[in-house]
């Protein structure tokens, strides 16, 4: 016992260090896991408001660029669906898109909720984006997030006024996509450090994709159909035999993300909940 006390007194610095160090590492590895991602700090009130103040200043500096891109987008959207809508879309901050239309009854599938990016990262293994809309604006988990140019990510955590979206630049995010010929593949972020490129997987050898071919979402995952993902720039190494991999340049610039839209899609929710319930039941049996 006496020897133990002497040992502790001689090396107490080391023991204290090891104790704190392992404590920190345990927190890191527990939260770094994508499945247990409880890194919802920036979705909470205090940090959210700090990020909001920070974003106010930075948004002011980029005001001209943002205005230009918003004007261009407004013009494009108005030309596309301004005539078809009965109610004035300008009176609504959240405008709606018509997918299937009838001469008698118009069905609204997708609703786009505009949101502002408060915090964004591109250098982590799993990157998150903080947005300024929460449960007060009917945001739910697993809603998809798109920007004016293409896909961004999906909502993973929601608080009252803020939500956290896992961006496309996350190692575990896989999105179903379709090539110009109609082949279904999936897109994931393989490089883990390059914020401009993703990799297209699961394309058979027989199919040849040319440089500059567009890759769109297929509508099988949470994203709406025919949202731009990016353009093919060349083949990528690795992958299974029999399947080809292509390098894709993302349409969205994740370095300059300021305004995004959260897609409220009732049909997809119904479908995924139904699919999950069937899979769960068949697993239990």
């Amino acid at each position: 016992m006496r020897n133990l006390i002497i040992l502790l007194r001689t090396y107490y610095r080391f023991f204290v260090f090891i104790f704190i160090f392992i404590f920190c590492l345990a927190i890191f590895f527990r939260n770094n896991n994508y499945q247990y991602a409880s890194a919802i700090h920036s979705a909470r009130g205090i940090t959210g408001s700090v990020h909001k103040k920070k974003q106010n200043v930075w948004a002011y500096l980029n005001l001209k660029k943002n205005n230009d891109s918003l004007l261009a987008e407004n013009a494009r959207l108005r030309s596309r669906l301004g005539i078809k809508l009965k109610n004035n879309p300008l009176k609504d901050t959240a405008f709606s898109s018509l997918v299937s239309e009838d001469s008698v009854k118009q069905t609204i599938y997708y609703k786009y909720i505009p949101a502002r990016v408060l915090n964004n990262s591109i250098d982590q293994k799993n990157n998150y984006i903080t947005l300024n809309k929460g449960t007060n604006d009917n945001i739910r988990k697993n809603m998809s997030v798109v920007s004016a140019k293409g896909i961004v990510g999906k909502v993973t955590h929601v608080s009252e006024n803020y939500c956290l979206a896992s961006s496309m630049l996350s190692s575990k995010v896989k999105i179903s996509c379709v090539t110009p010929n109609g082949t279904i593949g999936n897109v994931s972020w393989a490089s883990e450090y390059d914020a401009d490129y993703v990799v297209l997987n699961g394309i058979p050898q027989s199919e040849k994709l040319k440089k500059g071919d567009t890759v769109l979402t297929s509508g099988f995952s949470l994203f709406p159909k025919n949202v731009m993902i990016g353009r093919v720039v060349g083949t990528a190494s690795g992958g299974n035999s029999g399947m080809k991999r292509y390098k894709i340049k993302l349409a969205t610039n994740f370095r300059r993300l300021n305004f995004v839209y959260i897609v409220d899609d009732n049909t997809t929710f119904e479908r995924t909940i139904w699919e999950d319930s069937i899979i769960n039941v068949s697993n239990e049996q």
Binding site: R13, F17, I20, A26, I27, F28, H41
Partner: peptide, 23 residues
């Protein structure tokens, strides 16, 4: 470390490396 982790969504990353440096 924890303050920085709190603001950059990286629990334990800044804290563990700064504790190592302090030791």
């Amino acid at each position: 470390g924890f303050l920085l982790d709190y603001f950059s969504n990286t629990p334990g990353l800044h804290a563990s490396s700064l504790v190592l440096l302090a030791y």
